[in-house]
Simulated assay, not measured.
Amino acid sequence: MISLIIASIVAVTFAQECGRTSFSQTPNYAMQMIVGGQIAKEGDFPWQVGLVENGYLICGGTYVIGTGGVVKVITAAHCLSGKNPNPNNYQVVFGMHQTNVVGTRLIVRAVTINVHQQYNSNTMSNDIAVIAFGSLMPSGLPVNTFPACRPSRTYNHNEDSVVSGWGTTSEGGSSSTSLRYVWKPLLSLAACENTGNKGSLDATMLCAGATGKDACQGDSGGPLVAPRNGVWELVGVVSWGFGCGRANYPGVYADTWYLRSWLNTYL
């Protein structure tokens, strides 16, 4: 169970900027996967948040700026209990690096949750949701938080991307107490249809893969980001996969560019 202690908060001074971090934009595919893997430095992924349900860390999410400059979080629909989840059951942790160290972080209760109306739990189509916190502004968040940018375009085949989270460090294993990440190449749907995912994909999804490099249980809802023109854009939301890092089974993500019209309605 995650501690609900709120540490001291230092106000941030930025507002509308997004996608900036000291994390290197130079891909390193030699790094290990989240499963078994590479620990991020504190502040590498300042848009990464944790989703808590009834006191337990269950998923990840991405901090973005919504209309009017307010704080919003994008996560996966399957992380929530049905299409009309009770916001009172959910909290979001901003500024967390290690789950077992309080540090400088803030836990905020959800005010409204919008799950995609066409989310299908059988096919995982439209696996996306937006969490709002009333009029919460960036100035109320810890200093080690910063929003990811929304996607400015569709993705390219073999484009570099990074996925992060606190999920399990082996398939069916234990969760990580430290935030981990891995570089992954984005795959076109046509290329992904030539993998073990054939017949399970639709236009609301994108794939990112390399054997042995993947998100896993507990990373759901978290960010898949790509470096573009000096900033990091949210290109996908961790959705589903056959196992974790298996050969010929790349991970599948909700495609934020394809789903941008729906997102813009609730951001």
Rank of each mutant, 00 (worst) to 15 (best):
Y181C: 05
C59Y: 03
K198D: 03
V115H: 00
Q25L: 08
K198L: 07
A77N: 13
D160P: 11
L106Q: 03
V225G: 14
E42S: 14
P46F: 08
G199K: 04
N229G: 13
T67R: 04
M205P: 05
L136K: 08
W183Y: 14
V93I: 15
W262Y: 07
P85D: 10
L263D: 01
G37D: 06
V10P: 00
V238L: 15
S188Y: 11
V101W: 01
V111R: 04
A208V: 13
E159G: 09
D44R: 09
P138A: 04
Y181L: 11
A254T: 08
A190P: 01
K184T: 10
V102Y: 00
G36S: 02
A215Q: 02
Q217Y: 03
V71R: 13
T75L: 11
T145I: 08
P85K: 00
A191Y: 02
H157R: 06
R246Y: 15
A77F: 09
V64Q: 00
P185H: 06
P250D: 11
A226I: 12
V235M: 13
Y90A: 08
T177H: 02
N126Y: 10
G140H: 15
F23A: 14
C79G: 13
V111L: 15
W183N: 11
G236K: 12
T169M: 02
V115S: 00
P46H: 12
R20F: 04
A129C: 13
V35H: 01
G172K: 00
A210S: 04
K184W: 15
N120P: 04
G95F: 07
S81E: 15
Q32P: 01
T13N: 03
W240R: 01
V143T: 09
G82S: 02
V52W: 07
G222R: 05
W232P: 00
N89H: 09
G50P: 08
M1C: 06
Y90D: 15
L234C: 12
S125M: 06
I65D: 01
S22M: 10
L141G: 13
T256K: 02
E159Y: 09
I58H: 00
T26V: 09
M33K: 02
L136C: 11
V235N: 02
S135Y: 11
G140A: 13
P227N: 04
V163W: 10
A208G: 09
